[in-house]
């Protein structure tokens, strides 16, 4: 009797979770599906997941004076080529990589020595500095976007890569996280390195950095996900110059350029932007979940 009710319970739980999963997956499914389909199929909500893939003609191609044969293609090919040709999508992606990678590297270069000093060195004013870090944890960067924008504008840095990167160079959260991690590293390890004649600077990069790889990886995931997906800050400091736009901002421009029903290419572009992180997540779920929740495990 107990066995029966247990299996019934298991079945009920799966039923509830499955409904939730469908709602959660729905937009991903539609995004992918629309990126495969022709405009007509999108409008009429037909063609299943992959569409019928009947040949279609590219109107822009015709306008350029080429023949109909030359301009015939499958909708999926059309959508994805349009995504890359109608907007500098490749450039956006490159910008995204440049910005997220430089943010992360600078954050580490600034945070790691500071975290090490706060965790393992004794110096005058250490508690004050740590208090400062805790205080700064209270300030969300998005909230102070306006004064930051003004300051950057005053020094003429808006519409530059620098503007995209500078506000994020200091990660108090990163300092806090790494300090907590370094606290768990035994003092003996550091003393042994000192006995071996290593400088404090050498200790940070040759001893602490390697031991901190797990925590650093988690922080990397946290930082890259946040900044690849960030739309607000690029929206504030980049106005007009497409060569500097990050993927979300580029997608926004794409959306406003579209003439109403060009949803296929837009969904293709959205897929290309969403895909890297989602694929990375599916490949390394555990690491990603740990990385993101680390922010929760203060």
């Amino acid at each position: 009797m107990m066995k029966h009710s247990r299996w019934f319970g298991e079945f009920g739980k799966h039923a509830v979770l499955l409904i939730g999963a469908i709602v959660v997956i729905l937009p991903f499914y539609l995004m992918l599906s629309f990126s495969f389909k022709s405009p007509a199929e999108i409008q009429s909500i037909s063609g299943g997941f992959f569409g019928s893939q009947e040949l279609m003609t590219d109107r822009r191609c015709i306008k350029e004076g080429r023949s109909v044969e030359e301009c015939s293609m499958r909708p999926v090919v059309y959508n994805y080529t349009a995504a890359f040709s109608e907007a500098p999508l490749l450039r956006y992606l490159l910008n995204g990589v440049i910005v997220t990678v430089s943010i992360f590297l600078i954050q580490v270069v600034i945070a790691l020595p500071c975290a090490y000093a706060l965790a393992k060195l004794r110096f005058w004013g250490r508690d004050v500095v740590f208090g400062l870090v805790i205080f700064c944890l209270l300030i969300p960067v998005h909230a102070i976007a306006l004064p930051l924008y003004l300051m950057l504008a005053k020094v003429g840095l808006t519409n530059t890569y620098a503007a995209l990167v500078i506000p994020w160079t200091i990660s108090v959260f990163g300092i806090f996280l790494m300090r907590q991690f370094f606290k768990t590293v035994p003092d003996d390890l550091i003393d042994a390195a000192r006995m071996d004649g290593m400088s404090e600077f050498g200790i940070v990069w040759k001893v602490m950095l390697p031991t901190a790889i797990p925590a650093l990886l988690a922080f990397a995931i946290f930082s890259v996900v946040a900044h690849w997906n960030d739309y607000f800050w690029p929206r504030v400091v980049i106005t007009g110059d497409r060569d500097l736009m990050t993927p979300p901002l580029g997608l926004r421009m794409f959306r406003s350029d579209l003439d109403g029903n060009e949803y296929g290419p837009m969904m293709a572009a959205a897929t290309v932007i969403v895909a890297p992180l989602v694929v990375a997540f599916l490949l390394a779920q555990r690491r990603f979940i740990e990385g993101i929740t680390l922010t929760g495990m203060k």
Partner: peptide, 21 residues
């Protein structure tokens, strides 16, 4: 994994998908 997907995905892109949905 499924429930965590939206946390990873670019919100702006997904906003457009929802708009269309």
């Amino acid at each position: 994994a499924v429930f965590f997907l939206p946390v990873m995905a670019t919100l702006l892109a997904m906003a457009f998908v929802w708009e269309f949905t």
